[in-house]
Design a protein around this nucleic acid. Structure first.
Ligand SMILES: [Zn+2]
Ligand SMILES: [Zn+2]
Ligand SMILES: [Zn+2]
Ligand SMILES: [Zn+2]
Lengths: 126, 126
DNA sequence: TTTGGTATTGCAACTCAGTTGTAGTAAATT
DNA sequence: AATTTACTACAACTGAGTTGCAATACCAAA
């Protein structure tokens, strides 16, 4: 179940995503908002925002959870099964709006796929 | 640094991969070998076998570590940057030897990519 | 605007995969 | 057989994420 009440915590977290399209790790948010919100609250609100189709989440190379804004998602369905790009130099992660084609595999049904690309981002690219 | 001495622990772990091409999670190995090997030993030997190009590892949807046999890898370089397939019904994971093409991204250098495909495996496919 | 129901929050305690330090053990080499 | 040192077991730790619960704050009805 998603967000029901527009609380301070919700506003604070939404504000973190308002000005950027970059992804942010749950851990980074917890540290950054330490004086304002409790760790548990951050996890719970992020979870609800994902339910509502406002944010989407994924795991990075180290199994750490990241969140980014959704584009055209609803509470019933996420439409942003796009790849994510993690910079090996600065660690920044963001959504990449390219289409990676997953070929059919004999005798298997492909339902969903996750692609994590690693390399150098715009800022770190010489 | 990889394996230097051919110990009992190494033999036990190699035996687990000898008869199958399926991937096995570190946790599953730890449980399965609980009477023979210590948890720490399992992690350390797996790590070394990966260094030696005997096994390769990856994280599943839940950030859990899995290992599978390598094909043509050496201690200096892993050549098996292939996708992995996790069955949503039975949980089984294995290597998929298909080539998923990652297109170039403007102003970014793609170094490596990880693809995790989810769906129904051969056994669970109706 | 008060009141009351309940969604939400903070806190502490927990879970659990994976790591680290270390003293003892067992391969390999002589 | 003695020596060297890679390896192992154990216990204790780490750190991201979860859970239970009492206190709080949002919202709507009165
Ligand atoms: Zn960068
Ligand atoms: Zn994204
Ligand atoms: Zn299956
Ligand atoms: Zn593989």
């Amino acid at each position: 179940m998603g967000i029901i009440r527009k609380t301070q915590s919700v506003e604070v977290l939404l504000a973190e995503f308002k000005s950027t399209t970059e992804a942010v790790s749950a851990i980074a948010l917890i540290k950054r908002l330490d004086s304002k919100l409790n760790k548990t609250t951050v996890y719970r609100v992020l979870d609800k925002l994902e339910d509502d189709g406002v944010l989407h989440s994924f795991l990075d190379k180290n199994g750490i959870k990241w969140y980014a804004k959704c584009n055209a998602c609803t509470c019933s369905k996420h439409f942003d099964a796009h790849p994510h790009f993690q910079c090996l130099s600065c660690g920044k992660v963001d959504c990449v709006v390219i289409d990676v084609h997953i070929p059919n595999i004999p005798n298997r049904e492909v339902v969903v796929s996750q692609v994590l690309i690693q390399g150098k981002c715009e800022d770190c690219f010489v």
